[in-house]
């Protein structure tokens, strides 16, 4: 009766270029590869004496964080500055805004200041979609995490990290471990991995932390980590929020660690050259053993470096996609 609007109808311009970055779901392999290639080209900028590129000179980037975060906010800030943009950081805790109208008002105010890009983190799933579709379609919206729905730049920096260490995606088996239910990272990773053509994606966790019918996203479901880690090339750990202990989802941190914590012993089940990723910040002794997090197979610090490059890539691509769209509309008008 009704066809739901595809995210790509919102996030791509008429030429199929990125003009917002809301979700990895539905994007083509070519586009994801383009993001990775562009990010690759930005990686060496960080090594230079002068770490700036002029790509976003004269544009204003507003970082709108309706949910607290220092790490993600600072990487977006640095990414925008390396591209020579003017940056405005707004930490707006959700408690100070009444829902709905004021989110819209905040955005309309910034829109009136001619911001060119909104980097948005919000506790509601679909918040970035809402802004890009209904509030400010002509401002590039980068989703920096919306509820449990998506965290596409995190997923793409993971993809970049995997590609730089493993090369060909098609031969890989990747396992995502832990609190899948509450994780926007896991959802974005699943879509990106599937689109990039990995051989197999697995999710591993107790039933209380697995979303209903998650297998519909094309993943293999394991509740036993010892089974799930067999023959795995990439182990992608997730952060476990402390408050999950108080909600009958898990009996205790120690039981979770025993069953789903990544220890040296469990990592030995995976392939000998398996690598370990974690979106950070890590809970040592809750989801990962210190010696694994700091060990030779951990790519956690590479992820941080790659994160900067990926964010620079999607920011420059989205601004250019918006400009292209405006030019086209101008020509048509």
């Amino acid at each position: 009766m009704f066809e739901p609007i595809d995210a790509n109808q919102i996030q791509l311009n008429s030429q199929g270029q990125l003009k917002h970055f809301l979700t990895t779901e539905g994007l083509s392999r070519e586009l994801l590869t383009e993001i990775l290639d562009t990010a690759d080209s930005f990686l060496d900028v960080g090594e230079r004496q002068v770490k700036k590129l002029p790509l976003l000179r004269g544009t204003t980037v507003a970082n709108l964080f309706f949910e607290n975060s220092t790490r993600t906010l600072s990487t977006f800030e640095l990414a925008a500055k390396r591209l020579s943009a003017d940056v405005l950081n707004l930490n707006i805790s959700t408690s100070s805004t009444t829902k709905g109208e004021s989110l819209r008002d905040t955005l309309m105010t910034l829109h009136a200041m001619h911001a060119d890009m909104f980097v948005v983190r919000h506790s509601d799933s679909g918040a970035a979609h809402y802004i890009a579709q209904h509030v400010t379609p002509d401002v590039a919206v980068i989703n920096a995490g919306d509820g449990r729905h998506a965290h596409p730049t995190q997923a793409m920096l993971d993809m970049l990290t995997i590609r730089r260490h493993k090369g060909d995606f098609s031969k890989l088996t990747c396992a995502i471990v832990g609190d899948i239910l509450h994780s926007r990272v896991a959802r974005s990773q699943i879509h990106a991995l599937r689109t990039l053509g990995v051989a197999e994606v697995r999710v591993i966790g107790p039933q209380t932390l697995l979303p209903r019918h998650i297998e519909a996203l094309g993943v293999m479901v394991y509740t036993d980590m010892n089974e799930g880690l067999k023959d795995v090339d990439v182990v992608m750990m997730l952060r476990l929020q402390k408050e999950r202990m108080n909600s009958a989802l898990l009996p205790s941190e120690s039981e979770f660690y025993k069953l789903y914590g990544l220890t040296e012993e469990k990592l030995a089940i995976a392939k000998p050259d398996a690598v370990v990723l974690h979106p950070g910040p890590i809970n040592r002794g809750v989801e990962i053993e210190s010696s694994v997090a700091d060990g030779p197979r951990s790519l956690i610090l590479d992820q941080v470096t790659n994160g900067l490059a990926v964010r620079m890539a999607v920011m420059s691509m989205a601004v250019s996609g918006q400009m292209q769209e405006k030019q086209n509309n101008g020509e048509n008008a």
């Binding site: 799933s125 679909g126 919306d146 449990r148 729905h149 998506a150 959802r187 209903r212 996203l217």
Partner: peptide, 15 residues
Amino acid sequence: HEDTTSSRLGLDGIP
């Protein structure tokens, strides 16, 4: 409703 779509969208489901 809690099902495939809620899982995909990351919206809290009602079983």
